[in-house]
């Protein structure tokens, strides 16, 4: 058994480590919590998010599973029905689809189907997004499939601080939570405050940079892209909002910003058509129609399967494409 010192307030660590400490706290706080997935035990996860947890909490609470995503989520549903709080890891975004039926027809429906008798406090962690030079099916952004499914809560973290607090909030949440983790930011370092009391609620969007000329809406990996774009823009003052929660959407925070700036760009890596940004654009239009100078602009992936990694820098929204869209809000 390894002993790990809990990080104190303001400790700097990577996003992967912040998730790790969050999961450790969740496991320590509640004996009903367990972590399960492919290679999460002995190996500590391919991104080391569960590093050391099996040694600390045992292989029954940090469980290496057979290689089957439907099996991971399906058995987790059964465990939740028995009173446990499983945290499932799907190893990569593109591997979630074998579990799609379990997530959308089973997990998401069971509270309604049982008229509230069944609670499914399940977390499904999914590393998502591209930009790491990975192979096919390792760079996708499948969030819109899940935001479209009532019964699920869908969140995405973008900083070590949020990674730590949001994973703990997700584990404590009585509803199923699909938890997206930005792969390309796993090794980004930042301060982490382990005091949950000072953290914003899981379903709140956060203004991460204040500005007055246009609002950039982002989540997961594109938060950093938007912050870089705002920093690079010397002429205009750009506000950046990290949506954090995709379902529910914190419409009030978004609308308050756009009503003030009059311009809105929503940025994600997933294909634009039918993507999450379409929903955000529609909501912003409904709430801020009179304030908007132009239609809400969307920046994202193209109408093509995620490309081979030598082409991904063309496919992924970058600083220039974000600023090009900002140009078109005038």
């Amino acid at each position: 058994m390894t002993t790990t010192t809990e990080p104190s307030t303001g400790t700097t660590m990577s996003l992967s480590r912040a998730l790790n400490t969050g999961l450790r706290a969740a496991l320590a706080d509640d004996p009903a919590v367990l972590v399960m997935g492919e290679d999460v035990g002995t190996l500590g996860g391919v991104f080391r998010v569960t590093d050391g947890l099996a040694a600390e909490f045992g292989s029954d609470r940090v469980m290496d599973t057979p290689l089957g995503e439907a099996g991971i989520v399906g058995t987790a549903v059964g465990m939740a029905l028995r009173g446990l709080r499983p945290v499932c890891e799907i190893q990569f975004d593109g591997f979630v689809f074998p579990a799609f039926n379990q997530i959308t027809t089973q997990l998401a429906h069971l509270s309604s189907r049982t008229r509230g008798a069944a609670h499914l406090p399940l977390v499904i962690r999914i590393p998502f997004g591209g930009g790491i030079g990975a192979a096919e099916h390792h760079g996708e952004s499948p969030e819109a499939y899940f935001t479209h499914t009532p019964g699920l809560r869908v969140v995405a973290c973008s900083t070590p601080a949020d990674a730590h607090t949001m994973i703990r909030q997700a584990v404590a949440c009585p509803d199923p939570v699909v938890f997206f983790e930005p792969k390309q930011l796993y090794w980004e370092r930042g301060p982490v405050d382990t005091d949950l009391g000072s953290a914003p609620a899981m379903d709140r969007a956060v203004v991460v940079r204040e500005g007055s000329d246009a609002t950039l809406l982002a989540y997961g990996p594109t938060v950093r892209t938007c912050l870089d774009a705002a920093e690079a823009d010397e002429e205009r003052s750009l506000e950046v909002i990290d949506l954090r929660s995709l379902n529910p959407l914190d419409t009030a925070t978004v609308a308050a910003s756009v009503a003030r700036t009059g311009g809105c760009v929503v940025v994600h890596e997933a294909p634009v058509f039918g993507g999450y940004g379409a929903e955000v654009a529609a909501r912003v239009t409904e709430h801020c129609f009179d304030a908007l100078r132009t239609p809400v602009r969307r920046v994202g992936g193209f109408c093509a399967p995620y490309p081979p990694s030598r082409l991904e820098h063309h496919y992924l929204p970058d600083l220039d494409r974000v600023l090009d869209a900002v140009d078109r809000t005038w």
């Binding site: 989520v73 399906g74 059964g78 028995r82 446990l84 069944a118």
Partner: peptide, 30 residues
């Protein structure tokens, strides 16, 4: 209420509940 009768709702998507039974059993054993 599935808790009262120890009977899950009828499964309509064929076979989707088999994994739930396994997970439930794993939980009971744990």
């Amino acid at each position: 209420d599935p808790r009262e009768y120890r009977l899950h709702p009828y499964s309509v998507v064929v076979g989707g509940h088999a994994l739930h039974a396994v997970g439930y059993a794993m939980g009971a054993a744990a």
